[in-house]
Design a protein around this nucleic acid. Structure first.
Ligand code: ZN
Ligand code: ZN
Ligand code: ZN
Ligand code: ZN
Lengths: 153, 153
DNA sequence: ATAAACCTTGGAGTTTAATCCAAGGTCAAG
DNA sequence: CTTGACCTTGGATTAAACTCCAAGGTTTAT
């Protein structure tokens, strides 16, 4: 059993955040002490881990609440429905994954166009790309800024 | 040349959002009409595309402003420094990518544990996982909820 | 038995990223 | 030459997700 401060410390968040999650129906402590202190058990802790991981990958608390609260109506829902909800989230994750991969590729080629040398960035191809039409340069792979006239690479 | 409403329509955002980005130093129109209307050119449009893509993958506007505004001090910075900043962002993207992949894997095995059938989700393994220690079930791949006693799969 | 370090509640304040509003100026069409 | 769709500014409001505060109760350690 963890008190609120202990659980918060365990995940490096604030106790306030846990109270906030409780108020918004994401995570309630499974019990309270005689004096009213919140007491979280291992299941609560695992649930928090799930919430934080979902949050870390860009789900809103509302998204997460949807996902976690399917169970309220449990007996009136079919497995198909539940699985559908998870699969919808999965599709969203995969879409985000694709975007992120695209962006990583852009950044990688942006990085590749630059010599990374110690001289002035006056004619740095990264800056040239960011100032105006990045797509132009980002689209060309392995360019290694040949156009760089300000200094030798 | 696009007026504010045109550019906004092009990217399916509000004109207000463009004014907001301008106020926060992310994107200024390259010119104004005689009457003071904002006029955006193709470079502005490409820059907006970059901003929106960065935003879509989870960068805050501050992150994006950092990335876009390296150029202010251009001549006093070395290529190494500029490249370093891009590489730092790239590392962040790759970290996020890894988290997202982890999460997708979790969701996939969560989905796999469920039969997806038309019967009551009373004993649905997805719900069982979400109610308590998800990690337990999420860790086991290809489980296909054998423990499902509520109905046949 | 009295600090120090925790916890309780309710409510206010903060940040981010818009989004809306009011009062007015501009422009093309009929 | 007026109507309607657009634009301008500054300022207010929203929503999400915290974060902080005040006034007080509890626990633990000396
Ligand atoms: Zn260089
Ligand atoms: Zn460079
Ligand atoms: Zn089933
Ligand atoms: Zn199921």
């Amino acid at each position: 059993m963890y008190r609120i401060g202990e659980l918060a410390a365990l995940y490096d968040i604030k106790a306030d955040t846990l109270r906030f999650y409780e108020k918004h129906g994401l995570l309630s402590p499974s019990s309270r002490s005689d004096s009213g202190y919140r007491l979280y058990n291992q299941d609560d802790s695992e649930r928090l881990k799930f919430i934080l991981r979902a949050k870390a990958v860009g789900f809103s608390l509302n998204d997460i609440a949807d996902l976690l609260s399917i169970e309220v109506d449990k007996s009136n829902r079919a497995c198909a429905e539940v699985k559908g909800l998870v699969d919808t989230k999965l599709e969203q994750v995969e879409a985000k994954l694709a975007e992120l991969q695209h962006f990583a590729t852009s950044l990688k080629s942006l990085s590749n166009t630059c010599c990374g040398g110690p001289d002035s960035a006056e004619h740095c191809s990264i800056l040239e790309a960011l100032e105006s039409s990045d797509q132009h340069i980002i689209a060309k792979k392995e360019q290694h800024h040949f156009s760089h006239s300000g200094h030798k690479d």
